[in-house]
Design a protein around this nucleic acid. Structure first.
Length: 223
DNA sequence: AATAACCTCAACCGCCTCGGG
DNA sequence: CCCCGAGGCGGTTGAGGTTAT
């Protein structure tokens, strides 16, 4: 995947990175660090702009970057955090160790696309029909901050059972809850996120945490 | 088997923020 | 203050892969 490599008018390479470029960037940063992104490619022997190098390192080459499927736990966290924070992907990413803002953003948009489809309007259809962004935002069924009952099942876990989606997507002191559930402050949520991530072993295929989740139908979830 | 439709995600673009001069 | 450069961020694009017809 990725874009076809090409050179711009300044002779800088754009598009997909080659293995050789990856190796150069990685070994340079591991040896000298990224002291100046604009100057770095020159010293690393790369015909790339600094921005491109920075993105490649942050989103792909960094040793602590984790790729692969999202757990139900991560999925729920993203939904909850997005409801709380909106499109602040970098902030959301800070709560998911090993995940990058770009990756989370992509994941979220993939989820949104499912919601589009449930409303019989795919993003691709929208693009092809040149529907303007503003027009999209005016459609109630595609409001990104509202958890769509028809397409997103609210996950209930033993540890997160009190957390429900905030319906307005705005920042508030507590995450809204159902009437029978306890309120969660933002601090509680942050603490929970932190504890779960560092205490739970990570294994995508055999993630025991998932066993604690119970899928609720929209009517059950009382959203 | 061929084609269209859809999905995924790496990468780019442009704007914003912040710090230094 | 104001300007400028660098880094950071969010939105968007586009190409390859997958699934449906």
């Amino acid at each position: 995947m990725g874009r076809t490599p090409y050179f711009d008018e300044k002779g800088l390479k754009k598009g997909a990175w080659s293995q050789e470029e990856d190796d150069k960037l990685k070994s340079y940063i591991q040896r000298y660090g990224h002291w100046n992104w604009r100057e770095l490619p020159k010293y690393a022997g790369l015909a790339r702009c600094g921005k491109s190098c920075r993105l490649r390192w942050i989103n792909y080459l960094r040793p602590d970057v984790r790729h692969g499927n999202y757990t139900k736990h991560e999925e729920e966290l993203i939904i909850q955090l997005h409801n709380k924070l909106g499109n602040r992907w970098s902030t959301i990413a800070k709560h998911l160790p090993g995940r990058t803002d770009n990756e989370i953003k992509n994941y979220w948009h993939a989820q949104l696309r499912k919601r589009f489809r449930h409303g019989n309007v795919s993003q691709r259809d929208c693009k092809q029909k040149s529907i303007k962004k503003q027009e999209l935002q005016e459609q109630p069924s595609v409001e990104p901050n509202i958890v769509d009952e028809s397409s997103v099942l609210i996950l209930e876990s033993s540890s997160l059972s009190g957390i429900q989606s905030s319906s307005n997507g705005q920042n508030s002191e507590t995450v809204s809850t159902t009437s029978s559930m306890t309120s969660w402050s933002w601090d509680d949520l942050e603490q929970l996120i932190h504890e779960n991530f560092w205490n739970e072993p990570f294994d995508v295929d055999n993630y025991g945490f998932c066993d604690n989740f119970q899928l609720l139908s929209p009517s059950q979830s009382n959203v």
